[in-house]
């Protein structure tokens, strides 16, 4: 019985791998069904729901439990947690968190030094001192609008520009930051390099913005293949 099951599963795997070109990509299934909604763990959100009288709407809906890093602390930031997860290597979250915190420190030091050196009031107000605002701006500036996918038509593979979702674009921007920060001489610390890259990104310049514009340029050049996406 067990052997039969095994055979069946391997067969289905084969079928899926053959069909991968037909957009039937396998993904790990969630332990919670689609009826589960995301947890609400911040005091402000809960207070708002209670005061608006929306509590009735949540009575019969199952809710996922929060993960260990989703806390009601004022220091919680969802972008930060996502960034740490992308930086993590081999499940070593402690290290990734430390490196991220050193990045925050480096960013603060760079910006405060600029702030102290600035002479006029206008110059001072143009400097962003909050590191999390810098990260948000850098990601916003480096999000791509399109992506390229290899599509085979008549034995020739074309790089076809296709639209990208907001979630995927954000992920791509974060991964580019980390990838480019790793390319450095051995004496420079990763955290210092990443801090400088994020500050550059928030001002709409630097290596990551260049990579985004490069991608856009290729998409523009391959504009003629765009209809292959539809069949």
């Amino acid at each position: 019985m067990f052997h039969k099951l095994l055979n069946k599963s391997s067969l289905s795997g084969l079928v899926i791998s053959r069909c991968s070109t037909l957009n039937l990509v396998t993904s790990r299934s969630s332990s919670y069904g689609p009826q589960f909604i995301d947890p609400i763990f911040k005091h402000e959100d809960i207070d708002r729901i209670v005061s608006n009288g929306e509590l009735k709407n949540y009575q019969d809906i199952p809710i996922k439990p929060p993960t260990s890093f989703q806390t009601c602390s004022p220091f919680y930031n969802s972008v930060k947690e996502k960034f740490i997860n992308y930086m993590m290597d081999k499940g070593n979250k402690k290290l990734a968190r430390d490196v991220f915190e050193y990045t925050i420190k480096a960013m603060k030091i760079i910006q405060i030094e600029k702030y102290n050196k600035a002479t006029t009031e206008e110059e001072r107000q143009s400097i962003i001192l909050d590191p999390y605002v810098i990260i948000d701006k850098a990601i916003e500036n480096t999000k791509p609008m399109l992506k390229l996918r290899a599509i085979k038509r008549a034995a020739i593979t074309y790089q076809v520009p296709i639209p990208i979702s907001d979630k995927e674009a954000t992920a791509k921007a974060m991964k580019w930051h980390i990838e480019i920060a790793k390319d450095k001489p051995s004496q420079v610390h990763f955290s210092d390099n990443l801090a400088q890259i994020l500050i550059d990104g928030s001002q709409n310049k630097g290596k990551v913005v260049k990579r985004k514009t490069d991608l856009h340029r290729t998409c523009e050049a391959n504009r003629a293949y765009a209809h292959y996406y539809f069949g």
Partner: peptide, 11 residues
């Protein structure tokens, strides 16, 4: 400007 968040002193 070393600490930028408000209402965090208790924590």
């Amino acid at each position: 400007q070393w600490l930028q968040l408000k209402n965090v002193r208790n924590e």
